[in-house]
Amino acid sequence: MSSRYDPVIKVIKVSDTCPEVVFRQAGDRFLEVVYGRSEPSSAKTIKDIILRSVRVVTINNLVKKAGIDGLIETIPGGESLMYVYDPLVVTMEDLAEKIEHIERQIEDVGSQIIQTREITIPIAFEHSLIKKAIDKYVQEVNPDAFYCRNGSNLEFIAEYNGISVEELKHKFIDTEWFVSMVGFFPGLPYFYPLNPASAITCPKYNPARTWTPEGAVDLADYCSTIFGVESSGGCQLIGRTVPIFQAYSTHEQFKDNPALFRPTDIIRFYETSEEYIDNIYGLVAEGNWNYTITPRTLSISSWLEQYDSKEREAAELREKQTLARQHMQRI
């Protein structure tokens, strides 16, 4: 450590294609391992983030298999793993050494073939609970929120990306989404578009929202999430989907795990109405709605080829985004 305020205890390089692996002390019983050193999100592409996330999942599985004494639990992040450990059983230095050994076994994740699941769920872009959350925010938290217009954030997001609201909905539906992690509040998945032509983005709320309904879908900084339970939240609201978390299961799907999603899941959305979504809440409570879940193989090398083949469309979107932001800054 160069100074007593520098928490980085070790930086290793495992290959030319993997960003540097940074070991950070994170408390008296936490150690965080991060890929890359503090680059802002704007310096990374969706490709970088998804590849790092695949690495996180790969390493997490190996760590779990290794059964390290004193390791209590891990929390996967988009490009990091937080290790929670008992320092009376394993020291930070010994834990870091064991993790380094595992990190060095994986030079690259570009050839990984992931056995995962594809989960298809409906979304209603217009929903009265979403409108309620936005109206509540404007009334109680930020009356001048320029991103809230007529009880909706869609117009702002579209404008920020230089596209129409219809195009925004189309782009949201027209991609598969990759779940990189689950967290924040119970069951909430974080997911990124696998298709770079759907890489829509926008800034977060400032300050945060105090209430978000269950099932809300929101987006900021290229990342989307779904709310498993009612809670606070900070991203722009897109619409509402079906229940994704059930603590006391009345539905078979939640019998072994209260959370629907896990890292590497692939999500597909289809558009529907508010009534259709609300009806599903009743059916899930009775245990009577079928979640559409199919086994799926995700080959990282074929995905990278597809990603590159979308480059022309992706570049068009990026250009629209740049122009839109310049225009918004002027006004």
């Binding site: 994170a26 408390g27 936490f30 965080e32 991060v34 503090s38 802002p40 999100s41 704007s42 310096a43 990374k44 983030i49 891990t74 929390i75 996967p76 992040g77 988009g78 490009e79 990091s80 793993l81 937080m82 929670v84 990189s180 992690m181 967290g183 924040f184 974080y190 800034p203 977060k204 400032n206 900084d221 990342c223």
Partner: peptide
Amino acid sequence: AGGHPSNITDHGYP
């Protein structure tokens, strides 16, 4: 770098 400096890619919290 753009965005608020407290913002980073989502990670697990201690």
